[in-house]
Structure formats: C-alpha cells, structure tokens
C-alpha cells in the first residue's frame, strides 16, 4: 500500500513536470479556458438567464477540467507510445494501473487550476458578482466530481492503451460529453433520445449538484438522490476501469499493440 502511494505520487509529479513543459498543455489549461470563458460570458451577458455566472464559470471550468483530464490523460498514453516509454512502463514490476492513476491525478491538479484561472478571469475582467450558496457542500461535491472524472479518464486511458484506433476517439470525446452532460446549458434542451446517454454520464449529475450548491438547495431529498446516483456511477466506472486494466495486461501482449510498429 505504502509502495502504491509512493508510485502514485511520483507518477503524478513526473506527469506534472512533463505536462507543464509542453506548450500545448499550457494552452489547454490557460488560453483555451480563458477564451472559452470570454465567449460564454459574452453570450450569457444581457440575457434573461439568472445567476448566469454559475453557468459561465462552472460550465467553462467543468469543461476545461474535463478536457484537461480526459484529453490529456488519453493523449499522454499516446505520447508514451510514440516516445517508446509505454512498453517500459507496462512491463515494470509496478502495476500499470497505478502509474496511470498517478498521471491522471497530475492532470487533475492542473485541471483544477484552470477552473481557478477561469474564475479569476471572469472576476477580474468583468468584475462579475459571484456567490456560492452552500460553499461547504460545493467543495465536497467538487471533490467527488474530480474522483468521478478520474475514473472516466482511466477508462479512456485504458482504451487508448488497448487500441491505437482509440486515438481517433480521443479527439472527439470533448464536445459530446460537454453537450450531453449539460455543462453549459441544461441537457433538457436536447432531444429526448439523448437522455439515456446523459444519465449514465457522471458529469451530468456532478454539474447538476454543483449548480444546486451554487444557487441554493431547495429540495434536500432530491439533492441526496442525485448525489447517490453520482456516487453509484463513479463506483461502476472504477469497477469497469479495473476490468479493463486486467484485460490490458493480457490483450496488448497478444495483439502486440504496445509499440509503434
């Protein structure tokens, strides 16, 4: 256990070092969220949507975290493959799952920073009023949200390790999740047939809960029910990702898809 924690820690630190030196990463945690926040702020301004700051900051923040965690974590596997280090980290005595977890954790920390940057940008650039009705609840939900995101990211990372084709997937997983989980507009405006997909995406519930804790919780029972769904889905994700990593260990060696042949 102590050993695993150490591995997670060093992978996390290494990941942060590697990522930070990548200009593209700086783009995705700084420039992209700011411009995105600018666009959404401009669109929401002068409209009838009440407490739109919650939509703008939360929505763009959650989108950037999603992009940073999922996109980067998936991309990292691809970079390891291209750099020839994927083979190395899969075949060390340390469990690959743990190494990946550390990497995702690193990206998560950066992703949270980008939420902070978005918040500061809106605050400083537009001097927009912002208030959180339930700060403590907000923080708790936020942490659960991150845990849930990490689970999703590790599933994605597993898929990319398994198949080179999944790299194509990585490039267009961003918007669908942002749209379907209702990060910037309620998913209720989408056609009804998309509902089931929204419901099995944990960000959908995370965003609902976060928005509630910003605006104020009227119906505690409904809040707890939604929280239960979020926790349940996150649990399922972890089980799924665990299964994937067990498959990975065998499958990649049979298929020979680790290297860049």
């Amino acid at each position: 256990m102590k050993n695993s924690l150490r591995t997670i820690w060093i992978s996390c630190i290494l990941q942060m070092k590697l990522s930070f030196m990548r200009p593209m990463f700086q783009y995705s945690i700084i420039i992209d969220p700011i411009v995105f926040a600018l666009i959404t702020y401009m669109m929401f301004k002068d409209t009838s949507v009440s407490n739109f700051i919650a939509y703008v900051v939360l929505g763009t923040g959650m989108s950037s975290i999603w992009n940073s965690i999922c996109f980067s974590s998936a991309g990292d596997i691809d970079r390891e493959r291209a750099g020839g280090t994927l083979e190395l980290i899969v075949s060390v005595p340390t469990n690959f799952k743990i190494i990946v977890f550390g990497k995702i954790l690193g990206n998560t920390i950066f992703g949270s920073i980008s939420l902070l940057i978005t918040f500061l940008f809106i605050k400083l650039a537009f001097n927009a009023p912002m208030s959180i009705a339930e700060p403590v609840v907000f923080v708790i939900i936020f942490i659960i949200t991150l845990i849930s995101y990490i689970a999703l990211a590790s599933i994605l990372a597993a898929l990319i390790t398994l198949s080179r084709n999944a790299v194509a997937l990585k490039n267009c997983i961003g918007y669908p999740v942002i749209i379907l989980s209702g990060m910037l507009f309620p998913m209720e405006i989408l056609p009804i047939w998309t509902r089931p997909v929204s419901f099995i995406l944990s960000p959908t519930w995370a965003v609902k809960l976060l928005r509630l804790s910003v605006n104020g919780i009227d119906d505690v029972n409904s809040f707890i029910f939604q929280l239960a769904i979020l926790v349940f889905l996150t649990g399922i994700y972890y089980l799924l990702s665990n299964t994937f990593y067990t498959i990975i260990d065998k499958s990649i060696r049979i298929k020979g898809s680790l290297g860049r042949m």
Binding site: L14, L18, G83, G84, T85, L88
Partner: peptide, 9 residues
C-alpha cells in the same frame, strides 16, 4: 534508438 526515455526530463 533514442526512444524509451523522457526527453523533457
């Protein structure tokens, strides 16, 4: 070859 190490470290 030159792969198999982290160049940025």
């Amino acid at each position: 070859g030159e792969r198999g190490i982290y160049w940025r470290l």
